[in-house]
Nucleic acid binder design. Sequence first.
DNA 1: TTGAAAGCGCTAACAC
DNA 2: GTGTTAGCGCTTTCAA
Lengths: 338, 338
Amino acid sequence: MTGIHDLAREVGVSTATVSRALRGLPRVSESTRERVLEAAVRLGYVPSPHAVGLASGGQTRSVAIVVPFVTRWYFAAVVHGAEQVLREQGYDLLLYNLAGDSAARHRVLRTQVLTKRVDAVLVVGLGPTAEEIAAMQRQGSPVVTLGARVEEWSSVRIDDVEASRTAMRHLLDLGHRRIAFVGGLGEDGLDFTTPTARLEGYRSSLHDVGLPLDPALELDGRFTLDGGVDCGRAVAAMDQRPTAVFCASDEMAIGLMSALRESGLRVPEDVSVVGVDDHEMARFFDLTTVRQPVHEQGRIAAQQILRSLGGADGPAEVAPEHVELATELVVRATTAAV
Amino acid sequence: MTGIHDLAREVGVSTATVSRALRGLPRVSESTRERVLEAAVRLGYVPSPHAVGLASGGQTRSVAIVVPFVTRWYFAAVVHGAEQVLREQGYDLLLYNLAGDSAARHRVLRTQVLTKRVDAVLVVGLGPTAEEIAAMQRQGSPVVTLGARVEEWSSVRIDDVEASRTAMRHLLDLGHRRIAFVGGLGEDGLDFTTPTARLEGYRSSLHDVGLPLDPALELDGRFTLDGGVDCGRAVAAMDQRPTAVFCASDEMAIGLMSALRESGLRVPEDVSVVGVDDHEMARFFDLTTVRQPVHEQGRIAAQQILRSLGGADGPAEVAPEHVELATELVVRATTAAV
DNA sequence: TTGAAAGCGCTAACAC
DNA sequence: GTGTTAGCGCTTTCAA
């Protein structure tokens, strides 16, 4: 591996000059810079990130993105959006996929594994606990959350309560009065805020129109396809079957509909179904849903990170910024009047 | 930030002893080790990866995973599998998502961005060109490919030609003789080997039973949902419509079926459809497909990486190992006899 | 405009 | 068992 020393010797200048030339700093004559650049290419010189980081105050030029799952479309799309923006600015993305494992969550959010490894952290789809917040603050690097609001950090998200209420309003407008909810709580030992908020939107919608809450109508679909299937079977088997089901995610809605149809029920004739996300597959199921900008949230979160990382002169203490993106009802063919 | 020096002073020993104690090396008395460990926790000491890397020969304890897309289920599942295995061994995952961008591909595979940043590289779903292979070899770190076979490196994959032939055999057995192919080539400027191999399987299957190749029946679905939709429309509009379509991926099959149905065609009565992958959504479309182990391929590729990284004593020159996993026909309801 | 030299925070020989 | 002493490959004063 050719190092800066080899380069310096080759060009006949000092390592300091090489360093300046390579980084485009002033006080290097054009001719020297050119010779250095040329030799660098010729010798295939690549600076060691370790040495650079060590010598210049521990920067890593990389940010960690922590996701509860990476195989779910929503999270993958968020990662994609964030990666694009960060890559443009020369940052690398370190992926921490908790994969529904609470031990992994603890390791990443409570211990110091991230310390000194990254310049910033993007936490997606998790509502950090007070201890986790404290632990991450102790690490010193800026944090941005996506999908949850933490006062001390910048965040991007949608209003989950309102998204739920949009879906519910649609069902109520269609005349449905017995509406089931399929959501998820404390999923795999991870603590999310989204499931809670969506349940809350469901409940408050019913409350607003004077309908009673029926615990039997609140189902746990674990935010997965299979969970949706289970709930679909449960709904089909109910004595007093609901005329509509509000699923807190499209994936659960898809699983649910499949089970419903398997049980001989028609959607939307027998049961109306509405989801949340506008998953890439939603249109193929003709699923009525509440669309949220996913890729976009990833991009914005990444921009917030860049903002907190500041320009060339290190982390700027910026005030936390909370962005809330709009959602939109997309009516397709899985909902109909009672 | 407390450094090894602070720790040493605190405990009253030298930094060398602290280093040994922390890393569990021999020649440290139990009592000393305990005191060091205790103080480390108390002071919240975390070694600087930069310094460690620099001092101990440039290791990074991280590996790069290069994927052409991260939002497609297949790649996300591969990433998940690989991450699990690498994380267990204490490696971090640097994600390089090309996102269908050939400039990005060039940057990652041809330039030296990866040099000194990672200990190894996992290239997924791309058939590196000769120049790319040469460029990566110049970087020195071990490389493993997933989904393509490169002689100089270890690899995991399925036999794509055979997977195609399995699907085709199924259609031929059902009596289909006019069979269209939906695949993709040179997708977004990226060069894949999978599309080519799957096309080859289609062609050779027809050839084997003495059927002619009809260029009009070979469609480009770009390996996307939308591409599948386009092909579905094209198929529906054909004068001599095929009785069956073999799609080189489930996602294209799903898009295709949707367009077919929109055009008033029934699946499988009017057209049989078979895909490849066994995408998590395939069962909800009752899609007949050729299943490949996805998560598993990610895990195995990661193990190959660990193998090439060797134990504690650095990269071992291991002979490339080429693993080929079996596929399996999953018959559901989108295929029927003519 | 350039160079010498002192670190950055750790590991690794080697000596004790 | 433990400490001393060099670096690892850069950046960054400070002089020149």
